[in-house]
Simulated assay, not measured.
Amino acid sequence: MQRLGQIRWITSALWIAVFAGILLSWWMMYSMAVDMDLDLIGRPGPMGEAMRNMDPRMDMYMPMATFGPLFGMWAVMMAAMMLPTLVPTLRAYDDLIASANGTPMGWLGVLLGYAVMWVGFAALITAVQLVLLFSGIVDMLGIATSTLFAGALLIAVGLFQFTRIKDICHGVCHSPMSYFLGHWRTGFIGGLRMGLGLGAFCVGCCWGFMALGFVGGVMSLLWMGLATLFMVVEKLPDIGRYVTKPMGVLLIVGGVAVMVAPLILKG
């Protein structure tokens, strides 16, 4: 009984650390937005507008055109947006501490494995952003310079919502307990392995909403908040499966509207 009480104290401390990490990462994103002269929805002020129009091929040092600082921004963004979506998964493992042979170290392993996969994705999308930036497809703030590209990206992510890959990945994210029961490993290393697997499925499920930052602005707190809210709702056991395809329809319609609107205005 005393050992169980000690375990609960440890897991409670871990939960506090997770929620503190979420708050810290959102505060860091807000601070970065303020430093870049952006408002809460990502609109630049005078200094931000000047930064947005800079040429990344200039000789002067520009953090948003350099891998290290840009990767740091994406890594913090992954923590801010994806840690809240991990809460149901950690809660499922928490139940197995009481009912099976789960341990606090296994819980921590799940968290770290999940984080490793999303940090890896942060490195990948950083490289993608730099390619888009130096190709002139996005500006220095990571916002698409072409309505054609923005619309096509919205449509592509919308269509992905109807694919078999999305169904498989969402099924795992939607029911982490089933994943644990089918891939159960004990201890820290076991938790790490399960966390890596869960993180891989989560990246497969949610990558599109990260990529949509190039439409809404990668530093837009409004986009970050809406995307995080949807990904959390999508993983809720009772309603998650009912929102995936309707969101796909909305994204496709939005993509078509973004592409067609300039033609209508010109006409």
Rank of each mutant, 00 (worst) to 15 (best):
V215I: 06
I97K: 00
F121C: 10
L159W: 03
M54G: 07
A13P: 07
V87M: 07
L132F: 14
A122S: 14
L251K: 11
S31M: 06
T147E: 14
L222D: 04
T66S: 12
F134D: 12
W184H: 12
I41C: 14
A92R: 00
Y114H: 01
G142V: 03
L251H: 08
I137Q: 13
M77K: 06
M219P: 05
R52L: 04
A13K: 06
G45R: 04
M73I: 10
M73K: 10
I16G: 05
G120N: 02
G187L: 08
L90R: 00
R43G: 10
G136C: 13
S99M: 07
P104M: 11
A92I: 00
G182E: 15
G5L: 13
L192A: 12
F201M: 13
Y242I: 12
A20H: 09
Y30P: 02
P63T: 08
L154V: 06
G68E: 06
V110T: 01
V18W: 04
F149D: 00
G255C: 03
D94Y: 07
K166C: 09
M210V: 15
L108T: 10
F121H: 13
V119M: 15
M54I: 07
L222W: 15
A33I: 07
A92D: 03
D37V: 08
G106F: 13
L86R: 05
I264A: 15
M36V: 06
I16V: 10
G199N: 01
V243S: 13
A33N: 13
L192N: 13
E234Y: 08
L124N: 01
G191T: 01
M60G: 12
I155A: 08
T244H: 13
M78K: 12
G213M: 04
G136K: 09
G48P: 08
R185S: 13
G102I: 01
L90V: 00
V116Y: 05
V116T: 15
V249I: 15
N53S: 10
L112N: 03
F209W: 15
L265M: 15
V258D: 02
A13V: 12
G136H: 10
V215L: 04
